[in-house]
Simulated scan of single mutants.
Amino acid sequence: MAVLLEVIATTVADARLAAQAGADRLELVTGMGEGGLTPSLGLIEAVVAAVEIPVNVIVRPHSRSFVYDADDYAVMLRDVRAVKATGANGVVIGMLNAAGEIDREGLARAIDAADGLAVTFHRAFDEARDLRQSLDVLLGFEAVTNVLTSGGQPSVLHAEATVRELVQQAAGSQCTVLAGAGLTVDAIAGFVSRTQVDAVHFGSGVRVNSNGLAPVDADKVAKVRALLDA
Rank of each mutant, 00 (worst) to 15 (best):
M1L: 06
M1V: 11
A2N: 10
V7M: 09
V7G: 09
V7F: 09
I8R: 08
I8A: 11
A9H: 05
T10H: 05
T11K: 02
T11H: 04
T11C: 08
V12R: 08
A13F: 03
A15C: 06
L17E: 14
L17R: 12
A18W: 11
G22W: 14
A23S: 10
A23R: 05
R25Q: 12
R25A: 13
E27M: 07
E27Y: 09
T30H: 11
G31H: 01
G33W: 00
E34R: 13
G36N: 02
L37Q: 00
T38N: 05
T38V: 08
E45L: 09
A46C: 04
A50P: 04
A50F: 08
V51G: 03
V51S: 07
V51D: 04
I53W: 05
N56H: 15
I58V: 14
P61G: 08
P61L: 09
H62Y: 11
S63F: 13
S63Q: 07
R64W: 12
S65F: 06
V67G: 04
Y68P: 02
Y68E: 03
Y68H: 07
D69Q: 13
D69L: 12
D71E: 13
R78V: 13
R81S: 14
A82K: 04
K84P: 04
G87Q: 00
V91F: 09
V91C: 10
V92H: 06
V92D: 14
V92T: 12
I93N: 07
I93A: 10
N97D: 15
A99L: 12
E101I: 01
A108R: 14
A108F: 02
A108P: 06
D112R: 15
A114M: 06
A114S: 14
D115Q: 05
T120H: 06
T120D: 12
F121I: 05
H122V: 09
A124W: 09
F125L: 13
D126E: 09
R129A: 15
R132M: 14
S134E: 02
L135S: 02
N146Y: 13
L148M: 08
T149N: 11
T149E: 01
S150T: 07
G152T: 07
Q153H: 14
Q153F: 01
V156G: 04
L157I: 12
H158V: 00
H158W: 04
E160F: 01
A161N: 05
A161S: 13
T162I: 13
V163P: 09
L166Y: 06
V167C: 13
Q169G: 03
G172H: 12
S173V: 10
C175E: 03
T176M: 09
T176Y: 02
A181P: 00
L183C: 08
T184N: 00
V185N: 02
I188W: 00
G190E: 02
T195C: 07
V197S: 07
A199D: 01
V200G: 11
F202A: 10
F202H: 10
G203W: 02
G203S: 09
G203I: 01
G205D: 01
V206H: 06
N209F: 01
N209G: 02
G212M: 07
L213K: 02
P215N: 06
V216K: 01
D219V: 11
D219G: 10
K220S: 13
A222W: 08
K223C: 14
A226M: 10
L227I: 11
L228H: 06
L228K: 09
D229A: 15
A230H: 10
